[in-house]
């Protein structure tokens, strides 16, 4: 279980550009939860993910992962518990290393890097079998540099890498936003499959209302650095875009529905 208590983050504090991105945010994530996070531009979705991952340090608050206090832990230490897929397909993989070398790096997530061989023979067949499940033909290109792959292929590979060592929490930061609609759909379906098969606890940021409704067992909506809606269980299953719009209006602030969310 991941619990977040009274998180605060302000950018450019005490200047004219002061921006309170996260204010007094608390959240409990149960094991096996697949939460979709939705909200307009500047709602604080990405900042929340960065705070959880430790790539930005919080001003105040506490984060616990299974009773471990990670609040002060730096990003690379937290990586032991958390894996990520970024919005930019280039961010999750290293273009100058081959597919199998990238996977070998992910296979050692959270472990100390030694002067042992970077990749063992026994690993190669394991990776080949895993790549087969992606059904993208990558299983025959273990030695190809990742820089040669398409955005969708790189995102699928990043997803696979993020789950090579089962994380306590998987963070997906609009990981299909930079892909064309068809590829985005493939990657999303793959995400659902991998999350279900490995029973991963997942936090997925999206700006697409339909995706937020169709995927996961819980939906949270953010506005001005706070969680304004938290829908789970039966209610989440039966949720429609219309319901969501009505709930937004009821929450008193209709600015939160950005054009981008509606257009998608």
């Amino acid at each position: 279980m991941i619990s977040i208590h009274n998180l605060y983050k302000t950018f450019h504090a005490n200047t004219i550009n002061e921006n309170k991105v996260i204010t007094d945010l608390s959240l409990k994530i149960e094991d096996g939860d697949f939460i979709t996070v939705i909200g307009g531009n500047g709602a604080g979705k990405s900042t929340l993910l960065n705070l959880i991952a430790g790539s930005i340090m919080m001003d105040e608050g506490k984060i616990f992962i299974d009773d471990v206090d990670v609040s002060k832990m730096i990003e690379n230490k937290r990586a032991k518990y958390i894996s990520r897929v970024f919005q930019d397909p280039n961010s999750g993989t290293c273009k100058d290393l081959s597919i199998e070398e990238n996977m070998s790096i992910a296979k050692r997530r959270g472990k100390i890097r030694t002067l042992r061989k970077g990749i063992l023979k026994s690993e190669k067949s394991e990776y080949q079998n895993l790549l087969k499940t992606l059904d993208l033909g990558l299983e025959n290109r273990l030695n190809a540099k990742v820089g040669l792959l398409s955005g969708g292929q790189r995102q699928a590979l990043t997803l696979l890498m993020a789950t090579l060592v089962k994380p306590n929490l998987l963070l997906l930061d609009e990981h299909t936003a930079a892909l064309d609609p068809k590829t985005a759909k493939t990657v999303l379906e793959l995400t659902e499959k991998i999350v279900a098969e490995n029973k991963l606890t997942t936090l997925m940021v999206t700006h697409n209302m339909k995706d937020a409704i169709n995927y996961g067992n819980r939906l949270i909506m953010m506005n001005k650095g706070k969680i304004v809606l938290d829908i789970k269980g039966e209610e989440k299953k039966n949720l429609t875009v219309n319901d969501l719009l009505i709930r937004f209006e009821a929450s008193g602030d209709d600015n939160i529905i950005s054009d981008r969310m509606l257009l998608d």
């Binding site: 730096i74 690379n76 961010s91 290293c94 273009k95 100058d96 290393l97 790096i105 042992r116 970077g118």
Partner: peptide, 28 residues
């Protein structure tokens, strides 16, 4: 030899994508 070790891979990855290597638990 060195750039084919676990640590060597980490150095190469740091040069091309330090965000990726930190997300995989290496202190860049």
């Amino acid at each position: 030899w060195f750039f084919n070790t676990e640590f060597g891979f980490s150095i190469i990855a740091t040069g091309s994508n330090d965000q990726m290597i930190r997300a995989n638990g290496v202190n860049s």
